[in-house]
Amino acid sequence: MRESAHKTVVMVLFNDMLMLDVTGPMDVFSISNRLLPEHQHYRLLTVSEHQTLVRSSCGLKVQADMTLKDLPAGTDLLLVPGGPGAYGVAHPGLTAWLPTAVKGARRFGAICTGAFLLGDAGLLDGYRCTTHWNYVERLAQRNPGSRVETEQIYVIDRNLITSGGITAGIDMALAVVAEDHGKDIALEVAKVLLVVMKRQGGQTPYGPLLAAVPRDDTAIARVQAYIVDHIEEPFTVQRMAELAAMSTRNFARAFQREVNLTPMQYVLNARIDHSRKLLEGSDLPLKVIACRCGFGSARHMRKAFSERIGLTPNQYRQQFGGD
């Protein structure tokens, strides 16, 4: 008789979770079961603090299979989804339970902002991890003992696996299937789901490189606003210092201290962000966009774009542009 090789995947449920964070990875494992021999199937379970209907952020309700205290031994992968309920609400019962549950699991992880719950439970210290691009800075501030990666779609560090925003949970689950059963099975699952096995560019193409420009009357803020409003112009550190009415040396130090970027890094990111808007919303030729964004040439824009975003301008337009 063949020995069973079932792997138990447990998804934690709580109010205001993102439904796609739950169903995306779980469907990856479910579809894998269609392609695997029965003795290698994933066993899929859901748990919640109280075995009542759990309301997701979109309003759909889910009935968990069991309560936290009834979790059986032998969990292979314990996952926590994200959503407003993960980073905006305290879950003392869940975060008290998680460390013990993780000790009994071979692997554990989080989809999207579910990483905040792992952090609240003290489970990110000493690990590399990631979350949705819009929340990486907040996660890093709340968990100084971890190393939050900003660009990866998912991060695997020993027995912890975390993913970027929402649909990145599918990428993460495909990586788990590839590790468990080989790339060929994972590729077939990806084809069924109409997704690629490996996205180009990580999370970087999805979010702006710069935060909203402050519009106050400080010297550094005035320079930031001027750069964004006159992005087609050439800039040097000396010229920016003159705009701030400061010496070049003092300006460069003050700018990096306040913005966490050098002045020229800020200019480059501003140029790239503006070019992305034009690529998304217009059919202007690349040389025109390069000129309007201050790159000087399409070749220079392509080089900067590829190095910073991980895509060429044409690839970015194909992925994010309109019809």
Rank of each mutant, 00 (worst) to 15 (best):
L194A: 12
N134R: 15
G114M: 06
L36R: 02
G88F: 01
V22G: 07
A211R: 12
L13S: 12
L78W: 13
Q256H: 11
G114S: 07
D157I: 03
H50M: 08
G310Y: 09
A168W: 04
L284W: 05
G119R: 14
S247A: 08
Y266I: 13
A298R: 13
D273E: 04
P208I: 03
D16C: 03
I166F: 01
L20S: 06
G85A: 11
F116A: 10
C112T: 11
L45Y: 01
C293A: 14
V62M: 14
S32W: 02
L44R: 06
E232L: 00
S32L: 00
G119L: 00
R302W: 03
R302F: 00
P81N: 03
P92K: 13
T67E: 14
L286C: 02
D216T: 15
M1C: 03
L209E: 09
I227W: 07
V12H: 03
M301T: 09
L53M: 15
C293S: 15
D65L: 00
R253C: 05
Q141K: 14
D217H: 14
I227H: 11
M240E: 00
Q256W: 00
S297T: 15
L36T: 06
Q63H: 10
V148P: 02
D70R: 09
T46A: 07
A252T: 14
W133C: 06
E233C: 11
Y135I: 00
T218V: 08
Q265P: 12
F14A: 05
C112Q: 12
Q51V: 11
H6C: 02
G202S: 07
E233Y: 12
R239F: 14
E188A: 15
N134H: 09
L13H: 06
L45Q: 10
R249I: 13
G85V: 07
L193H: 05
A140G: 10
P205D: 10
L311D: 11
G114E: 02
A121T: 12
R257Y: 10
Q152V: 01
A64V: 04
N143F: 01
C129L: 12
F320A: 08
V89E: 13
I170R: 03
S275T: 09
L193E: 02
H41K: 10
V237I: 13
I156M: 02
P205N: 08
R302M: 03
K103H: 09
R276V: 06
R253H: 13
I156Q: 09
G59H: 08
K183N: 08
E307I: 02
G88Q: 13
R147N: 07
V155P: 10
V22I: 15
M1I: 07
L174P: 01
L194S: 13
G207K: 14
L174W: 03
M240V: 08
T131R: 04
F116Y: 11
P285M: 04
V196Q: 14
S56P: 05
M17W: 04
L79V: 11
P214Q: 05
R138S: 10
G126W: 08
A175W: 01
T218A: 09
R55E: 14
E258H: 12
N33P: 00
V195R: 09
E151I: 00
D120Q: 15
Y154M: 00
I111S: 05
G322M: 06
D216G: 10
